[in-house]
Design a binder for these strands. Sequence first.
DNA 1: CATTAAATGTAATAAAATTACAAGATTACC
DNA 2: GGTAATCTTGTAATTTTATTACATTTAATG
Lengths: 282, 282
Amino acid sequence: MNILEKITQSQAVFSKSERKVAEVILADPQTAIHSSIATLAKQSNVSEPTVNRFCRRLDTKGFPDFKLHLAQSLANGTPYVNRHVEESDGPQEYTKKIFESTMASLEVARQSLDINIINRVVDLLTQAQKISFFGLGASASVAHDALNKFFRFNVPVIYFDDILMQRMSCMNSCEEDVVVLISHTGRTKSLVEIAQIARGNDATVIGITSKDSPLAKECSLVISLDVPEDTDMYMPMASRIAQLTLIDVLATGFTLRRGTKFRENLKRVKDTLRESRYDRKS
Amino acid sequence: MNILEKITQSQAVFSKSERKVAEVILADPQTAIHSSIATLAKQSNVSEPTVNRFCRRLDTKGFPDFKLHLAQSLANGTPYVNRHVEESDGPQEYTKKIFESTMASLEVARQSLDINIINRVVDLLTQAQKISFFGLGASASVAHDALNKFFRFNVPVIYFDDILMQRMSCMNSCEEDVVVLISHTGRTKSLVEIAQIARGNDATVIGITSKDSPLAKECSLVISLDVPEDTDMYMPMASRIAQLTLIDVLATGFTLRRGTKFRENLKRVKDTLRESRYDRKS
DNA sequence: CATTAAATGTAATAAAATTACAAGATTACC
DNA sequence: GGTAATCTTGTAATTTTATTACATTTAATG
């Protein structure tokens, strides 16, 4: 438990002098961790052993140990928290907040992932004869990105952001095909229909969407990503980043499964790109 | 900065004995923070002053101060460190690693951002008559995403992933237009050419790319994103996520600048989408 | 008001960290 | 290849810091 909170809550069990110590520490914990027991005793108008006893009462081994705990509490002070952008925020603030809540969301998303399902999806992808990535709106760019990744693997991979093309593509799918459908809400009508069409053709349908959604119900396998709602602005933010990171995970699993030789192939793809670039030195 | 990472990165400046100390500490930092300087010296087969010198080399005031820093680093749980995926990693490991290094990269990227430039870019975007987002390869999906965001703002916004369309579009640009070019390396030839064309037509060219790259040199304004190299796999991963988060920042800045009334408009856009979705309850 | 227990402080002691200095290793230069 | 200069490391002394043991004070209860 955070020792700062513990100090606050332990006021009752403290003696008079100990309370004085607590007061001084709570007033400026940052300074406290850099003080010696003597300094702190003087500031609290208390003897050194009293400070030591104060530390022991908090179940620490002594003063140095107490400082360690305190330091850790202070460090825990600013973990990545999902803080919302406010009307009055300047660029400094909103930039910080957006980056931090993105990181916080990634952390939440990571913990919500089911590793077994990921493993099975990787399995299915490696065995697929053809892989399709479909999404609409904000999820379209995620599908687009997935195309980019899997295209490098030299597997037949398809991406459309046009509903009709998506439908037609699914109508032509077969048992060996894998269709990956991306939707944060899982309530986009046309995507749900596409899932039905693909399944009707015996294709494996994988959903990257939220649990228990209409889309999830139509899929063979669902990777559910719990991401804190993007309530700030009226547009998807963190959910998209989590989806992309998941794509990275799948792509990585894919290459690992395929083995070393396959990765050399990847390097060749990258080298080919070099011709379209300016040299590093220039 | 996280002192654990600092130890890792400082290997070069350490002396032989100091490296021994580093090794022992990195092997089990949790134990280290509870050890005295004597214990640690013995474990490292080194004298006590050497341990002390080790601490000072890391810019701490001495051993106790060093322990404080170490404790703080450890307090952040397992801080997000850029760890590489290994051949032998199972799904559990590589998933964790990818998420964590993505978060670590975001942290690094955030710190490398120049807030003033962001502010100016937001300025330019709000004043633009037409905004274009262009990128190729992995950055194409980032541009695609930007389209998605800015499209909701009811501003003329353009996106192409076709080189020729990009060129033509730039040829028709004028002074009031803003062209945003996205490229991690900044060495993609055709993008550099596009920058030149747009500038030739007096458009404002904003680069989201790496510092001092050929592309950066052709831009009116550059948002440089320092992201640790994506060395793991031969494909862009973290750089892309950082770019997307930056897009979020710009979009947020944009809406904040436009004020409350504008945001109501955004809500209407979102509401319109509802018709294409299944109800929450169903 | 006396007795006891708890709280606090003083002074001694022990532990830990730092400093000063010297010996040894390494590097650079002739 | 040898020598001076510099850097590295260790030993021992010193200082700082924390803890313990014990004495004194304070408060509480019958």
